[in-house]
Design a binder for these strands. Structure first.
Lengths: 204, 204
DNA sequence: CTCCATCTGTACCACTTCGAATCAAATTCC
DNA sequence: GGAATTTGATTCGAAGTGGTACAGATGGAG
């Protein structure tokens, strides 16, 4: 238990405030989300926001990093069980499709794909987070695919790195489609199709 | 030859102005691109822009529609020749990878994926254009894949619609990666990998 | 109780935004 | 040549932007 800090205690939880700020960014993107929007979303007024997270850009980067971390955790969890590759991949795509479709203002897809991609060209910091996240997702897929190859679920000659990038790419495509108004069935079908292509159509 | 209109002739070409405006949107996205930026990019001052295209939103929609039309034309051209499916798909992915990598301020990917995806949740008009574009790309892939099935380049039991959505998804993923700073080799490899998955690894 | 560190809230600042109004310039029709 | 008509440049204004200063609130330390 860390000792209570000296002065007046804050009346909010920075973690939930960051979640609420992220939700605001998630809907309208970085540039179109004003500090007033963030203030309304979090319930904090602007000076408090500034004190808690720094400026708008820093707040956004922290939201991006949070998503990146969450993605890593859930991918690691989904890929941990030593079941069949097809089962593992299906689990990931099903879960992702469900996540991408939620949001009270309509499906919002992936936070990174939906908002950071636009900023990435002009902003090296955003670009770095996005690139790191993609590399980590690639690595998660590739590691799981390699394990399947070792176990014999996939031919030894398979191109694990290439399959992994395709797997990530379809994930990105699902995120695009979610924001474009695609329905859950389409997203799930995309996942099922790429699983078929990677594991083989018939493959059990 | 249409007769010259009545008053003072305009000193610019609306088509090239739209291209220049699109280039500005392409780099920084819709929300972060101001009318001053557009004015600087096109060489037109604000009232002229307003007169030529309407407000900022209308200008953006026109840019989106232009990209959508261009994509349709180039996909139709790339899929027209009656060569092997693998050749046709490779042609599309190679050309797309090259397009996604150009841009003087770094790779900019696909205009629709790079900018419209962010706006699509809040703006039904943008969402409609994006959804229409995706559906058309799907249809182009699916039609070409069906032809390959008829010719016997692909098993008759193949899931053409599913493969097409995966093909589109990888295209979207390449666009994401381009903006994230990915290099041309990675984009090309992604295309080659999905072509292998669709056409079969060995298939010539 | 007094001092002080920290947080909250109001108000404010300089700046940019989009869009409109105004006026000057250029071209065709009569 | 003169009127009509369209384009172009300058300017303006109301609203919104990100960010900050300062006073008041809140609780621990001594």
């Amino acid at each position: 238990m860390e000792p209570r800090p000296r002065g007046r205690p804050r009346t909010y939880d920075p973690a939930v405030a960051l979640d609420q700020a992220r939700a605001a960014f998630w809907n309208t993107g970085y540039a179109a989300t004003s500090l007033d929007d963030l203030s309304a979303a979090t319930g904090l007024n602007r000076p408090s926001l500034y004190g808690a997270f720094g400026d708008k850009k820093a707040m956004y980067i922290q939201a991006l990093e949070k998503s990146r971390a969450e993605i890593n955790v859930s991918l690691a969890a989904a890929f941990a069980p030593e079941d069949h590759l097809r089962t593992a991949l299906t689990r990931v795509y099903e879960a992702t499709a469900a996540i991408y479709m939620r949001g009270e203002a309509g499906p919002r897809g992936c936070f990174l794909v939906g908002t950071a991609v636009t900023e990435a060209v002009d902003d090296p910091d955003v670009r770095a987070v996005l690139a790191a996240a993609l590399a980590e997702i690639d690595a998660a897929f590739e590691g799981r695919i390699r394990r399947a190859m070792e176990v014999g679920n996939l031919p030894g000659s398979s191109d694990a790195a290439g399959m992994a990038r395709v797997a990530t790419g379809v994930l990105n495509g699902m995120a695009v489609r979610a924001r474009a108004g695609g329905d859950l069935a389409t997203l799930r079908a995309m996942g099922a199709s790429v699983v078929d292509l990677i594991c083989g159509r018939a493959g059990r």
